[in-house]
Design a protein around this nucleic acid. Structure first.
Lengths: 125, 125
DNA sequence: TGATTGTATTCGTTTATCCGCATGCAGTAA
DNA sequence: TTACTGCATGCGGATAAACGAATACAATCA
């Protein structure tokens, strides 16, 4: 019961839903999520850890980057159902659409630019 | 997006999940839920209102009693899916099973007994 | 080795949630 | 009307969540 409540709690924050929305598109590192969602680094990292602890995400290190993605293999049935509900519910949501669009453009910009430009949103200025 | 987060937040509390578990069995008044789940009156009432605001429950007055039940008619698709997930997830949960069993016996006891016995859990002693 | 970069974590503050207690309100009945 | 009963709500305290800023840590590279 406590675990179920915790699972729902992980989904009860708008920022975490926005993160899930992005990760439902593709695997991302913390830095990319910061850029796309315009969040600070600690905030992004913490929400990702929350989603990990709740069993939605998995983590792998690739060099300097911590890559997060939906943990489809290890999720049990109701986690998968919940991820499906989130995807469905955010399909036509304006914020979610904009985030996904920004993700698409950010793909082309890449990470090095982010740290080189000294953007106030990303990767330490 | 905010609405979706609010929906999940309503499900992110163990007490509210226990309440939903009971209401998935049948319509109840506040007093019955207090007895079955061993909760104070204000606590029960507030959680019910939270679930109402989130769109899961409906309310009707029947004399002195406020009857709460799952609002199947007005719920949208993902509310219904979520209610299904909760039911499924709590099917084999020990606490949930015990609560449902207690509901079955409480049915036979009724309300008047509750207020007459001056039980410390229910209906003003 | 030391510098750099991406990420996690600690700290302190602000805000939200949960709860019991007491009170107020609505419906019923005498 | 008054009394009673079921329920909602205001209040204050305790606990937890969310956050930015700063710092610590880890992997890479010069």
């Amino acid at each position: 019961m406590r675990k179920l409540a915790k699972t729902f709690k992980a989904l009860s924050d708008e920022t975490r839903l926005r993160i899930l929305n992005i990760l439902l598109e593709r695997e991302c590192c913390v830095c990319e999520l910061m850029q796309v969602l315009d969040l600070t680094q600690s905030r992004t990292s913490r929400h990702l850890i929350t989603l990990c602890d709740a069993g939605f995400l998995k983590f792998r290190r690739q060099g300097l980057w911590a890559m997060y993605s939906i943990d489809w293999e290890s999720m049990d049935k109701y986690h998968i159902d919940l991820a499906g509900i989130v995807r469905e519910a955010l399909k036509d949501n304006q914020t979610a659409i904009l985030d996904r669009q920004k993700l698409a453009t950010t793909e082309k910009i890449g990470l090095t630019v982010c740290s080189a430009t000294g953007s106030k949103n990303g990767c330490r200025n």
